[in-house]
Amino acid sequence: MNIEQQLQSKIDLKTKPLKALGLLEKIAYKIGKAQQTLTPQLTNPTIIVFAADHGLAKEGVSAYPTEVTYQMVLNFLNKGAAINVFCKQNNINLKVVDAGVNATFDSHPDLIQAKAGLGTHNMISGNAMTQDELDFCFKSGQQIVTDIATTSTNIIGFGEMGIGNTSSASLLMSTILNLPIDQCVGRGTGLDDTGLERKKNILSTIIDTHPKPNNAKEALLQFGGYEIAQMCAAMLEAYKHNMLIMVDGFIASSAFLCASNLEPKIIDNAIFCHKSDEIGHKLLLRSFDKQAILDMNLRLGEGTGCALAYPLIQSAVAFLNEMASFESANVSNK
């Protein structure tokens, strides 16, 4: 038997009915297959939160002012955000990347400086970023993961912070999947009905006034954001290092959509951690033909879904490695 057949047999012969552990069995199989072993391990788990501002935010596509991006990065660095709490609870390393916040930060041991600009350009009047800025984002994202790989990390999660970034994610989703923009746009940080309608109208105008991109890199050039582009590149680099990739919510999934457009095999290493309350995320997950671990009406971002799902990923590895088989436990199989 090859390694895939051995893994499935090992899972099936545990002291349980077939498929009784549901999604945990699929996760265990995925991890074992990625690591090409019957006894996989998770080492030095790390979550990276990419933060950047968006020029489009001044058009009122978010319920929050743009300065919240800067303020939340400071909150991350002061260990006061939800992602800090959940990472501490589950012994996950956390790094924060300034991919393009419209402010400057003092040096900090948990902050990675990779600023592509002081926020993307307003898509109403042109592309979100220049080709040089996109190239910088890809080089930066790759280098960040290359550096983390030296710490023996073999499972990595991706989160984000950026007021206005659900608009970029919706535009990326719409153009790459050829879906009507209305199916991809949600309330983001909590827009009311009037704000949601304004957001839809603005994004529809942007779709109509931009040429259709031919690939994910062209889409990122047009629609941004810096944090999504760096996340996309970081995911691709994580795949090159054969890391398990924990994908957070709607924004992170849009970055993964871009990454999978550039390298389809990356799906083999991806674990989708939660289904966001954002309207487009269900369709986005369906496009990958994957089930998320959690469905808890989360829409915070920051990588919180990754941190919350990580203990269940640990459980998948634990049952594969430690649970008795029918034979070893002298339990009768049917």
Rank of each mutant, 00 (worst) to 15 (best):
I313V: 14
M161P: 02
Y310Q: 04
P109Q: 03
I176C: 06
K199A: 10
S254Y: 06
A318K: 08
I27K: 11
M173K: 08
N261V: 03
L312V: 02
S254F: 07
D110T: 04
C184A: 13
G141L: 09
L300A: 05
L179P: 02
Q291M: 02
T304V: 04
Q183A: 14
D277K: 12
C137K: 02
N122E: 07
P180M: 03
G303P: 03
A52C: 05
N297F: 04
I155A: 07
Q131P: 03
P109G: 06
L38H: 08
G280Y: 00
S260I: 01
Q113D: 02
L320K: 09
L56Y: 07
K115F: 02
F223V: 13
S253E: 01
L283N: 15
T146A: 05
Y310I: 00
Q183R: 15
Q71R: 14
A52M: 06
L285H: 06
A57M: 12
N84I: 11
S9E: 08
G32F: 04
A34F: 00
I47K: 14
N297K: 14
T130D: 02
H281T: 13
I267W: 03
Q222S: 12
L18I: 11
V61D: 04
S332D: 11
Q142V: 00
E278C: 10
I124W: 04
D289Q: 14
S170N: 07
M129G: 05
T194M: 05
G60S: 07
A99M: 00
G188V: 08
Q35A: 06
Y64K: 10
F288T: 01
A103K: 13
K79S: 05
R198Y: 03
L220G: 00
I156M: 09
M323G: 01
L308F: 05
L262I: 14
A99G: 15
T150L: 14
L118K: 13
P40R: 05
D110E: 10
L42W: 07
A52S: 15
I271F: 01
I27R: 08
G60W: 05
H121F: 13
Q142K: 15
I267N: 10
E327K: 14
H241P: 06
K14A: 09
A318Y: 14
R187V: 14
N127F: 12
N261H: 15
V61C: 08
L244M: 14
F158C: 04
I83G: 11
D182Q: 13
I47T: 10
T15C: 15
Y70K: 14
T15M: 10
S107F: 00
K212V: 14
K95S: 11
V247H: 05
P45K: 08
L7Y: 08
L179I: 03
L244H: 09
E25V: 12
A114C: 03
V247F: 02
